[in-house]
Design a protein around this nucleic acid. Sequence first.
RNA 1: GUGGUUGUAGCUCAGCUGGUUAGAGCAUCAGAUUGUGGUUCUGAGGGUCGCCGGUUCGAACCCGGUCAUCCACCCCA
Length: 456
Amino acid sequence: MSKPSLPAGTRDFGPDVVRKRNHILDTIRSAFQRYGYQPLETPAFENMETLMGKYGEEGDKLIFKILNNGLDNPEKEAKVRAGFETVLQGKSSTDITERALKYDLTIPFARYVAMNHGQLTFPFKRYQIQPVWRADRPQKGRYREFYQCDADVVGSRSLLYEAELACLYHEVFTNLGLTGYTLLVNHRSLLLALADRCGNQDWLVPITVAIDKLDKIGLEKVKTELTQKQIPSAAIEQIEKYLSVEGTADSVLEQLNALLGEIPEGAAGIGALREWMGYLADQPVSFRIDPTLARGLNYYTGMIFEVKAPATVSMGSIGGGGRYDDLTGLFGVSDVPGVGISFGVDRIYDVMEALELFPSDIAQPPRILFFNLGITEGKVTFGLLQELRKKGIAADMYPESAKFDKQFKYAEKRGITYVAILGESELKTQTIQLKNLSTGTQSTLSHTDFLNIELS
RNA sequence: GUGGUUGUAGCUCAGCUGGUUAGAGCAUCAGAUUGUGGUUCUGAGGGUCGCCGGUUCGAACCCGGUCAUCCACCCCA
């Protein structure tokens, strides 16, 4: 029997961790509800065709596939062998795997909307807090099973929603005490306009992939990568101009206007950002327009968001989102535009742990531990224990008669402040001793007085 | 998927150029102390040195493989 172990990239969450996670999840959930989003849950796994091809080529590789049952059925042997050949060629075959674990919450949501669009009232706002799975190689801040918290609204093109989602980010991170975050925004149309300016809109993907790395690898390496991707040098000059844009939001938009304003997509993107900023003018939301922000998921078409953790913790992005014009079109229902954001709870947890942002009173041990001093005494003690529990006071009792030393130490380890002692002599006098472990004070009380006590 | 790091007690780690019986701190258990904890003292239990093979008179240590781990790249929350 080998030692038990966990699959790579997964974790158990002990009591302390769950409490802290719940603190984050509760903060997010209550904000979602205040903004009028409704809860939704979808299955852990979906049909393969629901997920495949939605996240790009890289994404497909990272989808966890579930092996079909009954592959040993002799009647299916030919099919299974053919399917296996397909898999060996690096493709996927539903003859081997027809289901896969969900990779994010957005695509399953799109599937849900496509299946239920007849019943839904638009604009439909939903939030969803569930685990997702990625067959990535784990490393810092990257897990194979992690939670996403998404808020999306479908059925409207109004930029009011982009504005409210920015407020939502601000509210959640402020309530968590994570004030050092940065909200980066951009508009896909600007990137499209840049590709156009360079001479070919098909260059959108290679250009965005390269410039997205600017702050990581520097301008020279970005230019090298663009050259390698056969982007002509005249185009790279344009890109370099685009990348040099910086400053306040207004100044960035002005510079972009000079660069891309003549191109319809450019004008549209700049206009959208201006309108969005108008809604936020009197809101406490802070953000930065980052023309290099691209985001990998290829279904985004409008504004895109990314939340960066404070630079001191090197954690990369702890949230992201954007507008997609036609996500449900992938499932045969067109004309349902949407916009949404996501919180990466596991990374937020890591960041808050690193910055020591969790409140210290997050542990909730029972208030009182009843000592166990024998079966006869225990009967009375158990009765009092249940009375306290009925009154809503968290209390616990030591399971068997043991030395005081042991019972005291147990109370301390669990962080319990009060112990209640009912032994032979208290049994006779129908009293109980209540001791406060942090002050050391102790008093003898009648049972009724004890049950009415106000704990400090 | 590619490259590297590290695997020694429940946890964090020592362990010399290969040399008798592999250590420490914390944790656990017991006692000092049979109805009053935190501190202290004493003692005990706990290890196939990740696993498999090789070199050697001899391997925790050197070599090969393998598994796990963490980190970086790719990509991403």
